[in-house]
């Protein structure tokens, strides 16, 4: 069975998959909305414990990674393959930076005894327990998607090196880019909801 080359179809399929991710995270955003409504004061209080500098830096990091990714696709479309590869490596570097900063944020919190079901956390008001529960779940699920996206971009890089993704046939890279931008999109909402709620 020969593979049917359908550029628009491949892109459509990727967008449909992105919709599933929107609804997946959407469920968590629904919980956030409900609990923000229930515990406005505790959310404001708990929000102060997150580091706006680190969160803001991560926001800049992800936005820049999206920028690099968009440039990479632009480069490949213009036939600038080496440029594209460099930009993809920059994207991956940004992804790693994000994860490193996240690691430091999480380990600091865990070190202070703030993690799901910890005695330290359970001693606090209920609204703060919920806030941090959502914090770990939402940034955790997001972090997992950063790793998955990074893997996808790495795979695309390998395909370019092997000549399977080219300036004439680049839909795989475009789709990897779409996935990566979704990861950025989720963070664009997570940042204000967790770091700027104070």
């Amino acid at each position: 069975m020969s593979a049917i080359k359908d550029y628009t179809g491949a892109k459509l399929g990727m967008w449909l998959f992105l919709f599933t991710e929107v609804l997946l995270f959407g469920g968590l955003f629904l919980l956030y909305a409900a609990y923000l409504h229930k515990f406005p004061a505790e959310f404001h209080l708990a929000g102060k414990e997150l580091n706006v500098v680190l969160g803001g830096t991560n926001t800049v990091v992800l936005i820049s990674s999206s920028w690099f990714m968009a440039l990479a696709i632009s480069a490949l479309q213009q036939g600038r393959v080496d440029h594209c590869k460099k930009l993809m490596l920059l994207t991956l570097a940004m992804a790693m930076t994000f994860l490193v900063i996240k690691y430091f944020e999480w380990s600091a919190k865990i070190h202070h005894g703030i993690f799901p079901d910890s005695p330290e956390l359970l001693a606090r008001p209920a609204g703060e327990v919920v806030y941090f529960g959502l914090y770990y779940l939402m940034t955790g699920l997001h972090g997992l998607h950063v790793i998955l996206g990074g893997g996808l971009i790495t795979f695309a890089y390998v395909l370019i090196v092997r000549g399977k993704v080219t300036p004439q046939d680049f839909v795989f890279l475009e789709n990897a880019g779409l996935y990566w931008h979704l990861v950025d999109l989720v963070w664009i909402y997570l940042f204000p909801l967790f770091y700027l709620i104070a």
């Binding site: 919980l31 409900a34 609990y35 079901d117 609204g127 327990v129 919920v130 770990y136 779940l137």
Partner: peptide, 19 residues
């Protein structure tokens, strides 16, 4: 993990699970 998002003792609402 014992997150507690649906556990009233931890501030959760079991009806949200049903939603």
């Amino acid at each position: 993990l014992g997150v507690g998002l649906f556990d009233p003792a931890k501030g959760g609402d079991p009806i949200l699970y049903q939603h």
